[in-house]
């Protein structure tokens, strides 16, 4: 497996009424294979835009993305996506959703079946294989989305607020699941979240972004993800450094949010 290079990315959206939004400016990052990086930042700072560029859904106005030796030009199966919600196919049952990637490659069900079954077991849905998507709870749906992404064996998994629509308890369980899957599969993961706690728990590396223009504000290397694998995340949260780092980052984001508010008020 190979690392992900985000090389001096800038993104400008030209608005229909003239003018433009500088969503990202000179963002450079190097993500090693198997790294789990969480991304935090006030809303509108370009997190989704960055992820969409990495996924290949958007072409940056400047810079390029490289996965190993290959320059990214569009979406591809080596970069899997997990969305916040609504990305599952309602016309297929759970098993068909998870088998979608192998099916598209032309892999026979006979061949992909055991892997799909295993993944469904890992995410705890072995008894729901034949269920329709709309019969599942939000948490179960996100587990299907995770399994579907993993079944396709991507090198990099991109997650845009994957747990954002879940209730607190389900969310905690899912955080453990993400950590376990990360350890088990050794995938490179970029996870966007707006929860500081989640970013701390799940990020081996944590990236704080600042808005207008979207850029990297600060980077942390954190021990909590490794501590959390196979352990109770509540114990991790009781770690002394955890609350210190959390307060520091919260303060940082507060400041940014206030600055945005101030600017908006000044503009009015």
């Amino acid at each position: 497996m190979s690392g992900l290079m985000i090389d001096n990315i800038s993104m400008r959206f030209d608005l229909p009424g003239g003018g433009s939004v500088q969503a990202l400016k000179n963002v450079s990052l190097n993500i090693k294979a198997g790294e789990l990086m969480s991304v935090l930042g006030p809303s509108g700072c370009g997190k989704t835009t960055l992820l969409n560029i990495v996924a290949g859904f958007l072409a940056p106005t400047e810079g390029q993305i490289r996965l190993g030796e290959n320059v990214v030009h569009g979406p591809g199966p080596e970069r899997g996506m997990v969305f916040q919600q609504g990305a599952l196919f309602e016309w297929m049952n759970v098993r068909d959703n998870v088998s979608f990637g192998p099916d598209m490659k032309g892999v026979s069900r006979k061949q992909s079946g055991p892997k799909v079954d295993h993944l469904l077991e890992v995410v705890g849905l072995q008894d729901f294989k034949e269920k329709a998507i709309y019969e599942l709870s939000g948490g179960m749906q996100q587990r299907v989305a995770l399994a579907r992404c993993l079944a396709n064996e991507p090198d990099v998994i991109l997650m845009d607020e994957p747990l954002g629509a879940l209730d607190a308890l389900t969310r905690e369980k899912m955080q453990s699941l993400v950590l376990d899957l990360w350890k088990e599969t050794g995938k490179t993961i970029i996870l966007i979240t707006h929860s500081v706690e989640e970013a701390l728990l799940l990020g081996e590396r944590l990236l704080v972004m600042a808005p207008r223009p979207g850029r990297i504000h600060k980077e942390y290397n954190l021990p909590f993800a490794d501590l959390g694998v196979g352990n109770d995340l509540r114990d991790v949260k009781r770690h002394a450094d955890f609350s210190i780092t959390r307060e520091e980052i919260l303060g940082m984001i507060w400041e940014m949010e206030e600055e945005i508010m101030g600017r908006t008020e000044a503009a009015q």
Binding site: G80, G86, L88, W91, M104, P154
Partner: peptide, 24 residues
Amino acid sequence: AKVHAAYSLGASKSQILRKVIVPN
């Protein structure tokens, strides 16, 4: 998101049409 997900799972244009757009 469905279309993006399908592309990320390696679907081709004709597969997107048959497996995502038509049923949807």
